[in-house]
Design a protein around this nucleic acid. Sequence first.
DNA 1: GGCTTATGTTGGGGCAGCCAACGTTGGGTG
DNA 2: CACCCAACGTTGGCTGCCCCAACATAAGCC
Lengths: 152, 152
Amino acid sequence: MSDMEHPLQPPGRLRALASWQVNKVSTLSARLTAQRMQLGARTDFAVLAALEEYGALSQAEIGRRLGLDRNDVNGVLNRLESHRQVDRQTDPTDRRRNLIRLTPVGEAHLEELQRHTDAVQDTLLAGLTPEERQQLSHLLSKLLDSHQPQSA
Amino acid sequence: MSDMEHPLQPPGRLRALASWQVNKVSTLSARLTAQRMQLGARTDFAVLAALEEYGALSQAEIGRRLGLDRNDVNGVLNRLESHRQVDRQTDPTDRRRNLIRLTPVGEAHLEELQRHTDAVQDTLLAGLTPEERQQLSHLLSKLLDSHQPQSA
DNA sequence: GGCTTATGTTGGGGCAGCCAACGTTGGGTG
DNA sequence: CACCCAACGTTGGCTGCCCCAACATAAGCC
């Protein structure tokens, strides 16, 4: 072996850094996602999932639940609405709000994205045992929960 | 209390998704970072750390070790060089390469950034016990290692 | 000598998070 | 009631990060 190729490892100051690791895993996940679908579909998936689980929501409420900025929610909805995946109409009981509703087209799209998402998930976590996956998810959940007002 | 504020939880389809969780933790980390330093300082820190640990490197090698694009490495180095934190000169043994060297100014800056980074780290992981932090870091390392050719 | 490869550089595209501002609407208070 | 404040949707813009394409130069290989 002698002094074969350098391992090309990142410096130790970074290897130990949780924020660095998380960043890398995040972009890795983005890369894997881009191989199977449009990158922006991740946000679409999140919004559609929120509507499917909670029914009609206002744009601000979507943003709060997903940790997204109001502006960005607006942009996503414009795209979804143009594809008829979502229905947008002013709330009669509060004319400031827009009530966003999932259409059948949107539901179908949600399920399709779910399949792609699951596939990405499997690829991403391929190196971990089922127990480790569960552990990782649990730790991340706990971390996120500890930062309650993760507004946006 | 009755039916106080909705929990404002994200939909279940996302809560269980490792890629979603990782994304959220990553942006959370970015937010915490932005409170203490320039956002771009994260990449500066990475580059400076690589130079400090491995000595003089070429730009391409920096990119490979950190998982950064050659172009972006170039941009960072332009900034670092303009601040005299880094020294750039063509490698006499291979005139294609630029040998990048850390200057004393750069070393000082690295240590300063290290302090800020540690503080961010503590805030980010505040909700986890030391054992959990170690576990999380270990799992993320294993995940990253399982995707060897994480080129850039 | 020619071929391929690597390197640095320039320029550009796209996504994501964020902030500021505006007009509209509701809720509350005087 | 008039008034002020808070929330909402919308527009526009900025920054960081990842990525791709192209080019000229320089090394290495046959």
